[in-house]
Amino acid sequence: MHTKGFLLDTKEHKNFNLSPSPAPIEADSSAPSRKGNRLNFYPFAFTFIIMFGIWILLSGKFDPFHLTLGLISCAIVSYLSSDLLFPSLKIRGFFGQWLRFIKYIPWLMIQIMKANLHVLYLTFHPRMMELIDPKIVRFRSRLKSDLALVTFANSITLTPGTITVDVSIHGDFRVHAIDKASGDPLPGEMEERIARAFGET
């Protein structure tokens, strides 16, 4: 189902002739169907709000001239690329998912601190060459959506002694672990937490 949705996207994009974009990040089968040239309202509105917030943040000027310029350019950008940021937007459960994702961040920060202290210890150890034992670990993840897989891959790269080498769309991971202790516990707790954050228990 998953790969099918991904392949179908090129056809959809021909109908939807507004977007010169590549395949979206998350191709979910429950994506709202884009029939004809009608623009989906909610993705457009959310993209517009985010874009305008960033515009105000970066310009820092509040006179009408700059605000009007910002409105026009944000409208153009969100018109062209509203399907990139929110490819499958379901209004129900959307904010809940963001809240759960924000809850995941503090745990990730603690893990990043641990990882950095570990790598720092290895770096300054005088007999470092005897301590490290690099190897490639393979495993299969049970996460489904592309966004969850991307988050998982980036989290693996940031946390203890491991770097993601390769991810396939089915969830096959190849991970380079710097020593035995950091490679063994994969996928482990992190996968569970990401599954909970993205509602895939």
Binding site: I112, A115, N116, V119, L120, L122, T123, M128, I132
Partner: peptide
């Protein structure tokens, strides 16, 4: 770490993580 680690893959560990934090 970029200087001391033995090969390309293990050099990425200090470069990717320590630079981020």
């Amino acid at each position: 770490g970029i200087l001391r680690f033995p090969d390309f893959y293990s050099r990425l560990h200090p470069a990717g993580k320590l630079a981020t934090l």
